[in-house]
Nucleic acid binder design. Sequence first.
DNA 1: CGCGGCTTTGATGTTCATCAAGTAAAGTGG
DNA 2: CCACTTTACTTGATGAACATCAAAGCCGCG
Lengths: 229, 229
Amino acid sequence: MEKEVCNCESCDYRMFVFESLSSTEINSLCSFKYEKVFKKGELIVKEGDNIDDFIYLKTGLIKIYHTLYDSREKIVNIATPMDYVSFLSIFSDTHYKYSISAIADTTICCVKLTIIKDLIKNNGNFALSLMERLSANADKIILQNLCLNMKNLRGRIAYILLLFADNIYKNDNFELPISRKEIAQLIDMTTENVIRILSEFKRDKIIDTIGKKVVILNRKNLEQIAKHG
Amino acid sequence: MEKEVCNCESCDYRMFVFESLSSTEINSLCSFKYEKVFKKGELIVKEGDNIDDFIYLKTGLIKIYHTLYDSREKIVNIATPMDYVSFLSIFSDTHYKYSISAIADTTICCVKLTIIKDLIKNNGNFALSLMERLSANADKIILQNLCLNMKNLRGRIAYILLLFADNIYKNDNFELPISRKEIAQLIDMTTENVIRILSEFKRDKIIDTIGKKVVILNRKNLEQIAKHG
DNA sequence: CGCGGCTTTGATGTTCATCAAGTAAAGTGG
DNA sequence: CCACTTTACTTGATGAACATCAAAGCCGCG
């Protein structure tokens, strides 16, 4: 993990994350802000760590997961730069309830949480826009988990394949950023069954797979399976 | 459903919900605020309704649920006056994604959402405290659903029995506010299995039941089942 | 008093997890 | 850089957990 001083002037994501701030506020923020770069696989936050910083994803891909008492891991969400700004519960808790790892080379920006709280107090528009983001994010996670749990195993696999294609890669031809085991942890099933169903889909010419590479061949069919079942 | 003009001066919950507001702000708020009273079973919000009001639960008990494409219903949360102030996604959406029904006689307070948004803009402490509440609430729902899904059916039943006893009624002797069918919708199983497992627990002297009345007889045992399994 | 929804129990079948065993891939140290 | 170890992937066989189906009693309500 490397640490860098960021250059807010040249940051494409600045406007997205801090769109409601004045340039004075942005400049003041920048002096308290730093970047961290993580390689694929590295741990960014460990469950139980103190929450000191407001963190947002600049580039890359991360998984947010919770470790259960029997050391099984449940992946709660996979976050991309655009759809995710902060982490659950940072405003209501002192310690992280989730761990976060990079599943692709990733850059995050950190700002002391106290600075963000001051901004919330002093800039109403910022407060409101942040609230909208947090609310939308939490809601998406809740609804997504709800939908997944209603489906049978084939439906769940179809659902997340479409989610990767549509929401993350915007392409029917992509490379899975996570292992079969992690897919299992994301959609509540066993690794064996993830593999089995991917093989079935391949046999039935719905998708093609080579290692982590996936091509969706019959989208209609996949959408059908994702919806029913 | 009755509609009443509320009297904020005598409202016990005012301080809890709007603790960060000055008395000037409270008074101003009161002129735009009204109460609604619902009997057990009545619908409070229907999925798809416009979101116009910021609503909080004053007294009673409500269920928040989502209707799936095949008209099955999934209960997302049961909310009590103290642990729940607002509804998911009201700051990020224009229409409700969930329906809400009273599962006990219930009083809610409504304030136009625009008023709340103005308060957020102008009172930083209010913004921050509201954000904490929303964040804590969303987080609780996510974590709770996560935990439930890891458990087997016996574990889930034990878990929600303890949840009713500890979080809602603060008593090991209580009356279920929902039917067996609704329990099934809350913890993702069939009505038959809810009944079967409650019968098992009764046979094993872990609980006693008469209709909707429940008494926890062997809490240690129930906690064990809730944790494992 | 009869209808519909809630509750209960048993029998049956399906879905999915577990176990086992082997191959491929990827990381590790000499 | 190659042997070695570990981790990921894959397939099949088995069994357990759970949903579904069926049938009957119960309760509240018009």
